[in-house]
Design a protein around this nucleic acid. Sequence first.
DNA 1: ACCTGAACACCGTTCAAGT
DNA 2: ACCTGAACACCGTTCAAGT
Lengths: 218, 218
Amino acid sequence: MTVTSARAPRRRDALSRQRIVEAAIELLDADGESGLTVRALTSRLSTGRGAIYHHVAGVDDLLAAAADDVIRAATERTADGTDPTTAIRDLSLAIFDALDAHPWVGTQLAREPLQPAVLRIWKSIAVQLQGLGIDGSARSDAGAALASYIFGSAAQFAAGARRSSDEAKRQNYLDALASAWTERDDDQVVRDAASHLRDHDDRKQFMAGIDIFLKGIT
Amino acid sequence: MTVTSARAPRRRDALSRQRIVEAAIELLDADGESGLTVRALTSRLSTGRGAIYHHVAGVDDLLAAAADDVIRAATERTADGTDPTTAIRDLSLAIFDALDAHPWVGTQLAREPLQPAVLRIWKSIAVQLQGLGIDGSARSDAGAALASYIFGSAAQFAAGARRSSDEAKRQNYLDALASAWTERDDDQVVRDAASHLRDHDDRKQFMAGIDIFLKGIT
DNA sequence: ACCTGAACACCGTTCAAGT
DNA sequence: ACCTGAACACCGTTCAAGT
């Protein structure tokens, strides 16, 4: 009685770093940060657990690469030839929209300053600041400030965007948040903030911050 | 032959939420985010695994409570009676120093906008903006912008601060980061940014951003 | 060289049993 | 009511064995 091997047949199409990164983005978009597990990934790619370690260093590396993919697409969409102020606003909006579509990127950007996606954003900003004639340490201060503002906003909006699959859910979330705030601290200043929280527009508020910043550097 | 129970004797001094939060802060300060595990915590508190769940909802709740403890201490140190602009600068510095001493807080702040520590910072800022005569949606835009800037900076500096236990280590880290950047992208604008990165001062750069912001809202 | 999948060394959380 | 610690259902990563 011959016994066939229990081992699964070998996959035919080769794995690659890019294929793995794309699968990771699909998992992250579908289920958030917790959706990216080596087990889910290898099952989706029909491969063994250890296989991905031939192409990526580990889960941290994979998350950074996935975020960089998203940010690359966003920064490349910015038009050349416009004036630097408009370019900074366009760039900011492109990043905002990318984060809105992929909320997990917001959390990831705040995690590690060394990562490629962060360098990409820094560089895009620095180029425009150069266009505004800002140089030396003034440029690096302004660039760092704008980048930090974007990263901070990204992280804050990410939590909201995760729940904004539909408008009702988003409103529920904001109402609950506003109520939790006033419940915890019923100061007038908190009530004001909570009431603005209930009906604010993330995108508009984000751009208001960009404009405060632009006014501050000119 | 009588057999004594293998069970450990019951602890005498009662657990409390505050005792657990304090132990968590000690673990986080000593070993960073990865140092806070239920096992490490219950071993330090000489108690059983499940005991902490009588006082905290879980690890996420505990992290948020620990961050709030640190931020409370920082915001309470801000003096009354000074003019709002000085108060915002003092508040920012107090938060910066708290994050520098407890780098894990920077990462935690970026994780969840609903948490107490975030509300605390929002409120401290809003009070001062009110003092500057900024009201309505202008206040909530300015407050959100400043808070986002602080959260973004916090996360960026956290990664550096974790390595800055001594000056040589910090310089090594910055040099490696600057080299990695220019290696990846040898554009002039990146070389400039990398050279400023090598010898920048986190605290000064953070305050430069606060000042850009203050200029932008007045 | 690349892939497979079992094994390893961890996690957070739950819960029956004790005091 | 509070605590204990085993059990459960997961993780990421490594590595001998296969192709």
